[in-house]
Amino acid sequence: MLHPMPEHRPTPPHTAPWQDTVLHRLTLAVLISRFESRLLASSSATLTMEGWLRDTHITDSLPLRVEHVATDCPPPCPPPLRAALNIPADPQSVPLRYRKIHLVADGRIFSKAENWYRPDLLTSFMLAQLETTSIPFGHVVQPLGFSRRLVTRETLWSPLPDGWPHTPVIPAGPEGTPLAMPEHIFRHAATLHTGSGTAFSAVVETYTPQTLGLPPA
């Protein structure tokens, strides 16, 4: 299991209009599938999420901004990601820097990320931006022409029950019942590679229901 992402703040109340109905559950399932499909087909999660938020009119406050989350003791890079980075098990062999952030806009958290990266493969200007600005990692390292490789994915919540295509009835609450939204909906772990194929970063990204917006009228 990869390093967990503890909750930092509650989900804002303006996601409550999703109702516990079959229609809203099916709509959410479609939105999650479409959003995740975009992420899986892209090289930059940040740019893809910004495009999604713009296309679905969830927010116009773009580009996204980084909120740094303080950590007293940076965790080691999880073994599956360290192996994907082709870094020996000895933590001193290749130094990694770590940062934990939230990607936000309009006071809403759209994703939470942990990032381990090799400072020796970034420019001094990139390193300064990562340490002193609120610019997302994907924007900072864009000059590297990077690509993204998925290592693991986890479904953390589904609005539909397991095996729902073969279930005669999709559960729903009494009319007007708000759907209880989770803190997170899915998680991706991936590595980023330069244009020449060298792995320089590993990231664990956890996405929130804020990426699904509000229900249709």
Rank of each mutant, 00 (worst) to 15 (best):
Thr56Gln: 05
His57Tyr: 06
His57Arg: 12
His57Gln: 13
His57Trp: 10
Ile58Phe: 06
Ile58Tyr: 00
Ile58Val: 09
Thr59Met: 07
Asp60Tyr: 02
Asp60Met: 00
Ser61Ala: 11
Ser61Met: 03
Ser61Arg: 04
Leu62Thr: 02
Leu62His: 04
Pro63Asn: 08
Pro63Arg: 10
Pro63Glu: 05
Pro63Phe: 03
Leu64Arg: 03
Leu64Cys: 02
Leu64Pro: 03
Arg65Cys: 05
Arg65Gly: 00
Arg65Met: 07
Val66Pro: 01
Val66Glu: 00
Val66Arg: 00
Val66Ala: 01
Glu67Gln: 11
Glu67Val: 11
His68Pro: 04
His68Asn: 10
His68Val: 06
His68Glu: 11
Val69Ser: 00
Val69Met: 07
Ala70Asn: 10
Ala70Gln: 11
Ala70Arg: 11
Ala70Tyr: 13
Thr71Arg: 07
Thr71Glu: 10
Thr71Asp: 10
Thr71Gly: 02
Asp72Val: 07
Asp72Gln: 04
Asp72Phe: 05
Asp72Arg: 09
Asp72Ile: 01
Cys73Gly: 01
Cys73Met: 02
Cys73Pro: 01
Pro74Ala: 10
Pro74Cys: 09
Pro74Gln: 03
Pro74Lys: 09
Pro75Ala: 11
Pro75Lys: 05
Pro75Trp: 05
Pro75Gln: 10
Pro75Ser: 06
Pro75Gly: 10
Pro76Val: 12
Pro76Thr: 10
Pro76Arg: 12
Cys77Ala: 08
Pro78Trp: 08
Pro78Cys: 02
Pro79Asn: 10
Pro79Met: 07
Pro79His: 13
Pro80Leu: 10
Pro80Gly: 08
Pro80Trp: 08
Pro80Cys: 11
Leu81Pro: 04
Leu81Asn: 06
Leu81Ile: 07
Arg82Trp: 09
Arg82Tyr: 07
Arg82Cys: 04
Arg82Ala: 06
Arg82Ile: 05
Ala83Asp: 13
Ala84Arg: 07
Ala84Lys: 12
Leu85Cys: 07
Leu85Thr: 02
Asn86Lys: 13
Asn86Gln: 14
Ile87Met: 08
Ile87Cys: 04
Pro88Thr: 14
Pro88Asp: 13
Pro88Cys: 13
Ala89Lys: 14
Ala89Glu: 15
Asp90Cys: 11
Asp90Gly: 13
Asp90Met: 06
Asp90Pro: 12
Asp90Thr: 12
Asp90His: 12
Pro91Ser: 14
Gln92Pro: 06
Gln92Gly: 14
Gln92Trp: 15
Ser93Phe: 14
Val94Ile: 15
Val94Gln: 15
Val94Met: 15
